[in-house]
């Protein structure tokens, strides 16, 4: 490519990057301003004096309804929800994918097709039957219930990821391991799983983002002390006092978004690599 064209390309990329970074910048700078400065200054200006008051308030003392103890409780709720939900749904997806690609049985293709169908069911449809099911299990309005919902709804996607990845692993490898005397679990744990790092990262990141950012299930299937951060953020922003505290709202939104941003920054390269690996083989 000739030099001037390369320049144009970089310019376009830079503009696109700025366009997408702008909201983040506005959120960050607003969260570091005082209310006076927000009322006086313009949206894009840098904060005059950096103040973490809004962050402290969003974390610890902002009102979310009648209670005024910030987002901290909701944040830890989300952590307690997301870790088991991500790990269980990923583990089940890996196991399903392993069975559906390497231990096919009569009807396994049908089972896979039905699982895929699960990807296309809008979650709103599930709300009432799921509420009923949780009631039967005695899990209604509990953290365990919320984890259960996320695991069930995540399995279709995680199974698809792993199954398509494992289809690319040669069957001869499994045959060799069987001749070596390894059984179902040993082959999975010693041979297949160590090869799964790229797709494992993709699935973990994907599930983490999905579950952390979920609002619908959090709103419907949890209450009080088990509500996740998305619900907390909504409550915080909707609790009306005389003034709208933009800096607190922005800080709260950033607190809610921080874990997913961190995951992408730390593990983003695995995500791209894993998706590419799947694309070539699947």
């Amino acid at each position: 490519m000739s030099k001037p064209w390369r320049g144009v390309l970089y310019a376009v990329l830079l503009i696109a990057a700025l366009y997408y970074l702008l909201p983040l910048y506005v959120m960050l700078s607003t969260s570091l301003k005082t209310m006076d400065e927000i009322r006086a200054g313009n949206l894009l200006s840098l904060p005059g004096a950096i103040s973490f008051d809004a962050w402290h308030k969003a974390w610890g003392t902002a009102c979310t309804g009648i209670e005024c103890s910030g987002l901290s409780g909701y944040f830890w709720n989300s952590v307690r929800m997301v870790i088991p939900a991500v790990l269980i749904s990923t583990a089940l997806g890996a196991l399903n994918g392993y069975v559906l690609s390497k231990w096919r049985f009569r009807g396994s293709e049908l089972a896979f097709a039905m699982l895929l169908f699960g990807l296309y069911i809008p979650f709103q449809v599930l709300l009432l039957p799921m509420a009923q099911t949780l009631g039967w299990f005695g899990l209604a309005r509990s953290m365990a219930g919320l984890v259960f919902v996320h695991v069930v709804c995540g399995i279709a996607g995680t199974t698809l990821f792993f199954r398509n990845f494992y289809v690319g692993i040669p069957d001869e490898l499994i045959k060799a391991a069987r001749l070596d005397g390894a059984g179902f679990w040993r082959i999975f744990l010693r041979i297949v799983l160590p090869m799964s790092l790229p797709i494992l990262m993709v699935t973990l990141i994907w599930q983490f983002t999905q579950i952390w950012n979920d609002f619908l299930f959090g709103l419907v299937f949890s209450s009080g002390e088990s509500q996740p951060i998305t619900v907390g953020l909504n409550n915080l922003a909707n609790t009306s006092t005389s003034v709208k505290e933009y800096n607190v709202n922005m800080a709260a939104a950033l607190i809610a978004a921080l874990p997913t941003i961190a995951v992408y920054v730390l593990a983003g390269k695995y995500f791209v690599r894993g998706l590419a690996a799947g694309a070539v083989k699947g």
């Binding site: 040669p170 490898l173 060799a176 069987r178 001749l179 041979i191 160590p194 090869m195």
Partner: peptide
């Protein structure tokens, strides 16, 4: 079972465990 047949096999793709 394959493992109890007292056999060993060499595959076309070698089937070495990559990790």
């Amino acid at each position: 079972a394959p493992k109890d047949r007292d056999i060993a096999m060499v595959f076309q793709s070698y089937a070495l465990y990559p990790t």
